[in-house]
């Protein structure tokens, strides 16, 4: 496999619709948690195998009872996440920037969507096939609602009215060096736009501030990464120096902003196959996220 190359894009002059930098708005709806089954009922259901699982392997009972509560504690106590903006009701495709060496940003966004979506949806994320090859991780990803990043699965979820999350920068984004923080990488080939057009759902640009500084990656041990079959092997000020302790993320203060939904209005019926339209919409989404990131980073009082 070739080495993923980071290709910084020149900041494009906008000739399309101007990107408006949204002012942070308070979340309109108060958090309300769905009644999770009591612990006793949960254990009983586990033992008898009496719980629903959808065709992707998503187990909402397990997710809400065991997986989300510890993540919610990290979300509230460690990263102290502030959420602004709103998510549209019904199915949508949440497109976010990826960073932080370890995918804490994805986990925190999952909590943010679960607690702030008007219909209290779970975020269904699309993961690299690497995730599904790894024992434990793969089955845990499926049970918590994630699926393979392929168009068939994404369109199927969106048509069913689910909220789907994608990180178009992929490993290039999450594994980028610290000095490139808050600079969006290439957005693949805009596959997410085709998916949204096919499923006829809005795209929600999501900007995440704070994840960049949790594991400042200052070097990459490429031979070791290759040996372990990983996309990168990070060196941070604390890792591998402090061993497992160094893998604890720094307690930065986070801000997740869900931007106004972009409803791709295809000018032709076959826009989903038209590279010009796909790339234009992908650039609009990318520029929106970049502009919001710049604004939020410039106005935040402190990293911590």
């Amino acid at each position: 496999m070739g080495e993923a190359q980071v290709i910084p894009l020149p900041r494009r002059e906008l000739d399309g619709p101007p990107v408006t930098v949204p002012r942070p708005r308070p979340v309109t709806r108060l958090r309300q948690r769905r009644e999770a089954p009591g612990l006793r009922a949960f254990v009983r259901n586990r033992l008898t195998g009496e719980y629903p699982v959808d065709e992707f392997g998503f187990d909402p009972e397990l997710t809400d009872t065991l997986l989300l509560p510890p993540l919610r504690a990290v979300y509230e106590k460690w990263f102290r996440v502030t959420v602004t903006g709103t998510l549209p009701p019904g199915g949508s495709l949440v497109v976010a920037n990826h960073s932080g060496t370890l995918p804490w940003d994805a986990l925190m966004t999952a909590v943010a969507v679960r607690d702030n979506h008007p219909e209290r949806r779970h975020l269904r994320m699309l993961g690299a096939d690497l995730v599904f090859k790894v024992p434990v991780l793969g089955s845990l990803a499926r049970k918590s609602g994630q699926t393979l990043a392929c168009r068939a699965d994404a369109v199927r979820l969106l048509r069913a009215g689910e909220v789907v999350g994608v990180w178009p920068e992929g490993f290039k984004g999450i594994g980028k060096p610290f000095h490139e923080r808050y600079r969006l990488q290439r957005f693949g080939r805009g596959g997410f736009v085709t998916t949204a057009l096919r499923a006829e759902v809005p795209i929600v640009p999501c900007s995440i501030v704070g994840a960049e500084e949790i594991h400042p990656k200052i070097a990459d041990l490429k031979p070791l990464a290759k040996l372990l079959g990983l996309p990168y092997f990070p060196v941070t000020p604390l890792f591998p120096l402090l061993g497992p302790l160094g893998a604890i993320p720094l307690p930065t203060k986070w801000h997740i902003h869900f931007g106004d939904p972009i409803r791709p209005a295809p000018s032709t019926p076959d826009a989903a196959d038209d590279p010009a339209q796909i790339l234009e919409i992908a650039d609009t989404v990318r520029d929106t996220i970049q502009a919001t990131l710049d604004h939020l980073v410039a106005t935040r009082p402190s990293i911590f």
Binding site: G57, D129, F132, K133, L148, C150, A152, D153, R156
Partner: peptide, 12 residues
């Protein structure tokens, strides 16, 4: 396989 779509249709 790990790279299969979650749900197969007749077109796959």
């Amino acid at each position: 396989s790990a790279t299969s779509p979650a749900v197969f249709t007749e077109q796959d």
